[in-house]
Design a protein around this nucleic acid. Structure first.
Lengths: 355, 355
DNA sequence: TTGTAGGCGTTATCAA
DNA sequence: TTGATAACGCCTACAA
């Protein structure tokens, strides 16, 4: 072993293989890519020599420089992976993207956009970026990244220059849910909101917090709710997790019956699931003592939340749309944003309030 | 607009910026990388010109060829993203990897290894690969990928030549759980196993299925259980999901009391959670009528499963270990595998069997 | 502090 | 069907 400690055995290059096989580099290249005419004999000789030399195929790094494509689509998340993936809705969207871009030989690169750290975004060899934005705060990164001239697609982000958005009619769907409760006769409702901004500050839904909020879907959903219940208040959580719903639910429900809301509008199914658990813990029946609605329509593994009244968003479909947009943009075709509409799904967690 | 339809505006290159700024390419490079001495004046001039030309910084693809590093670590999953991420244990491990490799400026590329499709693995510009193996079937891919000469790290995979494994004492931990039940007096136990192989065939735990099984942790856990209960049988599921646990649990429990197991050993917390739900549906109390143990110790969002008797595996820590191994290997240092040990965590889901 | 030269490993183009 | 040539865009010795 004469090579330096830790030195990885130098990989042979395509040129070396070509030389050993007695062909030109271009021919060897063709033998591997299959992108041109090569006699079977030559090809097998090249392949044999390659196997002999331990050549593992063309270096993807060189290939991507030459081709101008890396075959990588970046998915920009605003959170740690654990947090981002705790909500099945994000996973579903990611899956939708992969479903479309995968067959076109693209893989997904996970990028987390922590406070002001644009570097990673700029240094990643991605052909396009999908922003799991939701936050207007992404704006800063976007303006930097846009200069790279790669296709930018966002999912449920506020409108941004140069970014194609795959949206969702949050306002309309939220209004639908609120209207459903209103029609049932509910007049005292409370909202359990998603995180409102990067700080994930919790507390009451105050005008100040709303004004400072940056999380697009949360703000839009609240806006939709208030089209029906203009004064709807409630609590802000730290994010779409059952435990947060439980905490907020407990706080809202553990009060004298006269002050207790008769319905809770949770801004996600996960939050709703937590609220229902909180109600159960307090001995309140759903929908007898309390009506609960969610948002997302994800298949929760929790049987108790299975029959939640909610709106179903086509999460995988949204991901697919994002993937298609990426592919179109990459192909230099025109692509337009899409706005999906969630479908109201009545469940067994809502009923008229007790008389 | 004279450029072709759909043609993306040609990005200026570093050379173009240099020319426009009246400096050499190397100086411009230094201005961006900050890796050498450049006068402030020159640097700012270069940067200004770059901004002017709409140059978004060095092309990562070219950079990675030149540097021989892409800054990307591949995570190879055996399943669709939805399925893989449904189990929080996988997400936790991924998070652990990112936690270590991220600060070293590496991002994670998601690679799914669908049946025999090695291409993607070979074409991805990754510096290293982490195999979320669990299946001996990965062997085929591994032998192909090994030729690329990049560091290969697996998490809980069967021993493979040239692959560093971050393991887990599945046998020991499973025996601990079984012993716990045995000590309590249980003699009629059933196992709800993870998927045994790629086909995800369900049914009884038969010798044939076990012999044909490829999922390492499932087999190892069963082996551990059988050190205490040599004849333990049960059902094979399609994977670590609550719904699968529910299905298997129902099948095992919806029988005459005399045939019913007094304890169920679920091979994951998610499965255990489903089993508990099934028991509840059948009017059986846990741990009164049935004891249940899980495996993983993940923080399930389901409150009912919160106090599960289980073993806690240091999932994030395992991910971190994998990340550290990758970094070490990348640095050309020696690195060794690690075997983690799960910790028994008694909960309130186990008790002596009814007399 | 700046510039020159050369190459990282491929592949596209064209001619033979 | 094969081969020569020239980039792809950048970085790093080394020299000035």
């Amino acid at each position: 072993m004469s090579r330096a400690e830790g030195d990885v055995a130098a990989r042979p290059t395509l040129a070396a293989v070509a030389r050993a096989a007695g062909v030109s580099a271009s021919t060897a290249s063709l033998a591997f890519s299959g992108a041109g005419p090569v006699s079977d004999e030559t090809r097998s000789r090249v392949l044999a020599v390659a196997a002999d030399l331990g050549y593992g195929g063309p270096d993807p790094r060189a290939r991507s420089l030459r081709r101008g494509r890396s075959g990588i689509v970046g998915a920009v998340l605003e959170d740690t992976l654990s947090n981002a993936f705790r909500d099945p809705i994000n996973v579903a969207m990611l899956d939708g993207i992969a479903d479309v871009t995968g067959p076109a030989d693209n893989s997904l690169l996970l990028l987390t956009e922590t406070e002001g750290e644009h570097t990673r975004l700029l240094d990643a060899p991605v052909d396009a970026l999908v922003l799991f934005g939701c936050s207007t705060r992404l704006d800063a990164s976007v303006s930097t990244v846009r200069r790279r001239g790669i296709p930018l697609v966002s999912i449920e982000a506020p409108p941004m220059e140069g970014v194609l958005d795959i949206g969702e009619d949050n306002v309309g769907a939220s209004r639908l849910l609120a209207q459903h409760l209103h029609d049932l006769g509910h007049r005292r409702v409370a909202v359990v909101a998603l995180e409102l901004g990067p700080g994930r500050e919790t507390g009451g839904i105050t005008d100040a917090r709303v004004a400072a909020g940056t999380t697009w879907p949360a703000l839009e959903r609240l806006r939709g709710t208030r089209l029906v219940y203009p004064d709807a208040g409630g609590l802000v959580t730290r994010g779409s997790w059952t435990s947060e719903g439980h905490r907020a639910g407990t706080q809202l429900l553990d009060v004298p019956a006269s002050e207790r809301p008769t319905a809770i509008i949770a801004q996600s199914d996960l939050l709703a699931s937590g609220v229902i658990a909180a109600a159960a813990d307090l001995g309140l029946s759903v929908p007898g003592d309390l009506s609960v609605v969610g948002y997302d329509g994800v298949r929760l593994d929790d049987p108790r939340a299975a029959d939640l009244t909610t709106v179903v968003q086509p999460a995988v479909e949204k991901g697919r749309a994002a993937g298609r947009a990426v592919l179109a943009l990459l192909a230099g075709e025109a692509a337009t944003g899409t706005i999906f509409t969630s479908v109201f799904r009545p469940g067994s967690t809502t009923a008229p309030p007790r008389a």
